[in-house]
Write a protein that binds this DNA or RNA. Structure first.
Lengths: 120, 120
DNA sequence: CATTCATATGAATATATATTCATATGTTCA
DNA sequence: TGAACATATGAATATATATTCATATGAATG
């Protein structure tokens, strides 16, 4: 015999069962939501936004990026690793130097939409 | 008499002065970069992404959202406040209940671009 | 092949923040 | 007006993460 399932986390009485069911069905999969949040987390740091913004202008080596951002080389390198893992930037090696640049046009588009929202 | 300014944070010798200067000039203002990072920080949490994703389907009261997300009412409420402050959601009051919904179409567009990147 | 230079990385620290609990606020209705 | 309900919020805790320091890796060069 089945009990009417009581969702433990909502103590409200006037829950709208139909709406809740509909939304549960139509929502994106948890994995997509998780991946999106992870991607936005990468954008959610001003150092990384600044790096991307700088790379829009020109490819650069780590040293130059550190100079532009006025930050320690190691701090920049740590952040570059995160951007690289998110496939937002790419790199090429030339002797001792490593030159980083934007991976594709998606970031530009995402940034533009963000600016649209901020300017509104 | 001016000294050649030594940027303290970059200890590299082979800095490319011209590139660094160019990038410094063409980069976005710090304030814009900061604001963008703050906005993305709001998107950078799976609970908040899930709330927005749910509100794409339908407006809902806090109670229903808590039910959909299987989270405590207070946790949802705290996150709603952050989304509200970022002007990503709006609300209307109806008796005791508060119904939340999407503020505009920007979020949809930003999410779509993010998905584009993830699917690539 | 030893040195120098550019970058990467591990550990430690400091800071930010998501959730929970307890409770406050505000609304409805008897 | 008092009881019940829906939401908001402050404080505390736990967790995540950005930066720094120290050092490792790896390439060029004399």
């Amino acid at each position: 015999m089945e009990y009417e399932e009581k969702i433990p986390s909502c103590d409200c009485v006037s829950e709208h069962r139909d709406i809740v069911e509909k939304v549960r069905k139509e929502m994106s999969d948890d994995e997509i939501i998780y991946d999106m949040a992870e991607l936005f987390k990468v954008f959610g740091d001003s150092t990384r936004v600044k790096i991307l913004d700088a790379l829009f202008v020109s490819e650069m080596c780590v040293c130059d990026l550190a100079s532009v951002l006025e930050m320690k080389q190691s701090a920049v390198s740590h952040q570059l690793r995160i951007l690289k893992q998110a496939r937002l930037i790419k790199f090429r090696k030339e002797g001792k130097a490593v030159y980083y640049s934007m991976a594709d046009e998606h970031v530009r588009k995402i940034f533009d939409q963000a600016i649209n929202h901020l300017e509104e």
